[in-house]
């Protein structure tokens, strides 16, 4: 409030002709970013500034960027950052969802609502279409999932739309192969990542040069942690899909993970379905995304839970990462998110 008072004083003391040089204080909300007298910034402010810089760099240097938007919390934060980076203009690129068809309906509702609200173009790349076109074959068996098939759908959509920069919500704290990746991560004409030969990346100067057919994956949330994402959701009062909060759901346990009963999951005879109070810590396909038992109904409940947890989010909730120690690295090499 000192700051608002000061501005008001400055304005009223200034000569009439210079009064407009001093900005007025539009509302209380702007005080949230009022600077501190010692020129310090909080960790969220530093992370936000870095992400916005990255997004503007892409918009300035690439012809056809696209932002991957799944309706999960990381892509929600990424989309909010894009809004802030280009305000008061609209986001100057489309968003794309790689749709496995095995989605939580709450998340698809959220996606459509959010896209309409911002007025951004949505490209849906469908794994079902890739299957129908014979580009990929559906996995069979009780543990079948479309997780790995997404890579082909994603790469085909990048090629078809001639996207040259693809924003992903990956964070380096998520997984050890991701901890190694650059912010601007080069992909060759096959969409492949070569982890042993990454471009050096100094300061905040990003090499954006590519040849036709190649692209760059850009990770604006590289330095964010799971807790940073939740704190930002709280600070910015971002709406998130309801499944991130505690709710009643019919689930069964497989390999220590609670999977939802659904038309896409097939519990075996010894996998008892029961009702539990759960929430989702990550959001992916129904067949590979585990729920956690929780009574957290607000963002601050969730933050308290995450601050106290002793298990990583992917370890707790993703069946797809448990295949082998290098499964993420292998999928990333092929062009996965």
């Amino acid at each position: 409030m000192v700051c608002a008072w000061l501005v008001v004083q400055l304005r009223s003391n200034a000569p009439a002709g210079e009064r407009d040089l001093i900005p007025s204080v539009p509302d209380d909300r702007s005080l949230l970013v009022a600077v501190r007298s010692d020129y310090s910034l909080s960790q969220l402010e530093v992370l936000e500034a870095e992400s916005i810089h990255i997004m503007r760099e892409v918009a300035a240097e690439f012809e056809r960027p696209v932002l991957l938007f799944s309706g999960g919390k990381d892509s929600i934060v990424m989309l909010a950052l894009a809004e802030r980076a280009f305000w008061p203009a609209r986001i100057p690129f489309p968003v794309m969802h790689v749709d496995t068809g095995h989605n939580f309906p709450e998340v698809i509702d959220y996606r459509d609502r959010r896209v309409a609200e911002i007025g951004v173009k949505l490209v849906v790349a469908s794994v079902q279409d890739s299957i129908d076109a014979g580009r990929v074959a559906e996995e069979t068996g009780r543990r079948a999932s479309r997780n790995r098939l997404q890579t082909t759908t994603l790469l085909d959509a990048i090629e078809e739309n001639r996207f040259d920069a693809v924003f992903g919500g990956g964070r380096r704290d998520e997984e050890k192969a991701r901890a190694k990746e650059r912010v601007f991560s080069f992909r060759d004409e096959f969409g492949q990542w070569d982890p042993k030969n990454q471009r050096p990346e100094l300061w905040s100067i990003y090499n954006t040069r590519i040849r036709i057919g190649e692209h760059i994956r850009v990770f604006p949330l590289s330095n964010w942690t799971e807790l940073d994402v939740w704190q930002y959701i709280a600070r910015e009062k971002l709406e998130i899909p309801s499944i991130y909060y505690a709710h009643q759901r019919r689930v069964f346990e497989r390999d220590g993970i609670l999977l939802a009963e659904s038309e896409f999951t097939h519990p075996a005879d010894d996998e008892q379905v029961f009702e539990a109070t759960v929430r989702y810590r990550t959001v992916g396909d129904i067949p590979v995304t585990g729920a956690v038992e929780s009574s957290a109904t607000t963002v601050s409940d969730v933050i308290a839970e995450i601050a106290a947890t002793r298990i990583t989010e992917r370890g707790q909730t993703r069946a797809d990462d448990r295949a082998s120690e290098a499964s993420m690295e292998d999928r990333k090499r092929e062009g996965y998110f």
């Binding site: 700051c3 501005v7 040089l21 900005p23 539009p26 509302d27 909300r29 702007s30 949230l32 970013v33 009022a34 600077v35 020129y39 910034l41 402010e45 530093v46 936000e48 500034a49 870095e50 916005i52 810089h53 503007r56 809004e83 802030r84 980076a85 305000w87 008061p88």
Partner: peptide, 23 residues
């Protein structure tokens, strides 16, 4: 020239310094 305003999506700010991203 002079700086008329320093904008952010949350509203104008009275000063900007490194590493702030502003308009």
């Amino acid at each position: 020239t002079r700086i008329a305003r320093i904008d952010t999506a949350r509203g104008p700010v009275p000063e900007a310094y490194s590493p702030m991203s502003v308009t």
